Amino acid sequence: MMKYIGIYTLFFMFIFCTFCKGQTKTELPKDDIKSETKDVITSHGPNSITRTIMQDRKGNIWMAAFDGVFRYDGKTFANITSKVSAARFFSVLEDRKGNLWFSSIGSGVYYYDGKSFLNFTTREGLANNEVTCIYEDKTGNIWFGTEGGASCYDGKSFRNLSMYNDVNSIIEDKTGRIWFGTRGNACFYDGKTFTDLTHNGKPFTNVWSIIEDKKGNIWLGGTDGLWRYDGSTFTNFTQKFVNCIIEDKKGNIWTSSESDNGEGWALSCYDEKSLFNKKTTVTETNLSSKTIFTVFEDDDGNIWFGSSGVYRYDGFTFDDFKGNAEYPLHFFTRP
């Protein structure tokens, strides 16, 4: 492991000067105001760029898009935020208590308990109002990746790690380390110090997606392509730009990336049985246009993805949930 990772051994205060601006903790004011709203039923899902799709414990599908946060119960769509904010929404998370968090570009974060909203911005201690990702760690802290570093909310106050780079992705691995994919260098944080992830002395830059698979491997996707790190060895699967990574229930790895032919984008599935072979079996579904921003597997094994709108793939056919057919997608699947 030491062969591939350069570890900063200096104390956290020194790292403030080289990687972070500092760490601050802000207590929340006691006069936060909750605003109540009613869902707005729509005949379709998002018509705009969709950055995150997830499923809550009740089976509802949630979509964070530039035209609002939508909920789909299997029959009906509802725009949850149309009466609350006109902001572009980026991410949605259901925490362990069943409450929902929505991140936005420009308006901070919205907390939703199913009845009313609470808005957190820099005024309440958030690092930046441009928030691109949300993650809940094992202890219940909520992490926010922003364009001004990362914020950690413990239910009472914010603790900010003010990095010089935008934070695109956050996860916690099995050992409790927090990993950050940033516009700068990918790194992990052990609670005291940061460690840049490097391969052959070169850092991984502009990482858009990080996941940990069931076996404990770390996967990174970004400008340098798709990589797997097993704690000692790095394996590259493609050098094409990779925007999003997920692991499905069978252990297959799905990505959204630039297509092999250089035209448009592709939804790729790396077969679990061949992931450790010299040549991995990959099935690629090309789209004639439009970036795929997010990929998600629901409880029934359907693959959802967000582009300019939302789509669902059941292994045989694609469903388009857009109400606006101005930018249709065309699919070409090949092994």
Rank of each mutant, 00 (worst) to 15 (best):
Y111Q: 08
T122M: 12
S82G: 02
S35Q: 11
I41W: 04
A150P: 01
D67R: 02
C152Y: 02
A87P: 03
F77T: 09
R51N: 07
G149L: 04
R57A: 03
N99E: 12
T37F: 14
A87K: 02
L118W: 10
N129K: 06
K58H: 12
Y72Q: 05
K58A: 15
N141W: 12
Y110S: 12
R123W: 08
G45L: 03
W143M: 07
K21L: 11
D73P: 05
G74A: 07
K115A: 15
S116C: 10
G125M: 10
W101V: 03
S103R: 02
A87H: 02
I105M: 13
R88E: 15
S43T: 06
D95F: 04
W143Y: 14
G148N: 04
T139Q: 09
E130Q: 12
S104L: 03
T132R: 00
D154T: 14
T42F: 08
Y112A: 11
K34I: 08
G108Q: 00
D32Y: 13
S35Y: 11
M54C: 07
T122I: 09
G140H: 03
G108L: 00
Y72A: 01
F120P: 04
N119Y: 13
K97S: 11
D67S: 08
G98K: 05
I105G: 14
G22C: 10
T146S: 09
G22W: 13
S43F: 09
S85W: 06
A150L: 03
K97N: 14
T81L: 10
T132W: 00
K115T: 14
D73F: 11
W143H: 07
N129L: 06
I53R: 00
S104C: 11
V84W: 08
C152N: 07
Y72M: 04
G68R: 05
D137P: 15
S35W: 09
S107V: 03
L100M: 15
D67K: 02
